[in-house]
């Protein structure tokens, strides 16, 4: 499979990355190089193979429904680039 500049633009949109024209060309080349390498996997028939998400055989890791203290609200926004009171401020959405 190969990836076009248009694909790169679409992926950049999904990933919320603004790319320059030069970057689009560069990423198209670089991604194609890596993806070409990925095609080796197609040599394997995996139709009967279960995918591995967890290497350990884990299941049912739960917590009890018990309240623990939350953060001090003033600490919540301590690293915020823009804030108002204890809330985060973001530019207009539409």
């Amino acid at each position: 499979m190969s990836i076009s500049k248009k694909d790169v633009e679409h992926v950049a949109l999904l990933a919320r990355l603004a790319l320059t024209e030069e970057e689009k060309v560069l990423y198209t080349e670089e991604l194609n190089a890596v993806l070409g390498f990925m095609d080796t996997l197609n040599q394997l028939d995996t139709s009967e193979i279960e995918p591995t998400t967890h290497v350990l055989d884990i299941k049912n890791v739960f917590r009890d429904d018990e309240v623990a203290p939350s953060m001090d609200p003033s600490q919540v926004v301590i690293n915020a680039p823009a804030k108002k009171g204890n809330q985060f401020r973001v530019p207009k959405i539409m």
């Binding site: 499979m1 950049a12 999904l14 995996t46 995918p51 591995t52």
Partner: peptide
């Protein structure tokens, strides 16, 4: 970018799922 592409619609099975299956092997 690479990861977003591998997970994106139409490519998930060919890349991510395939990779997880080979991971099993």
């Amino acid at each position: 970018m690479l990861g977003t592409y591998a997970l994106s619609s139409g490519y998930y099975d060919a890349y991510y799922k395939k990779a997880q299956q080979v991971r099993t092997l």
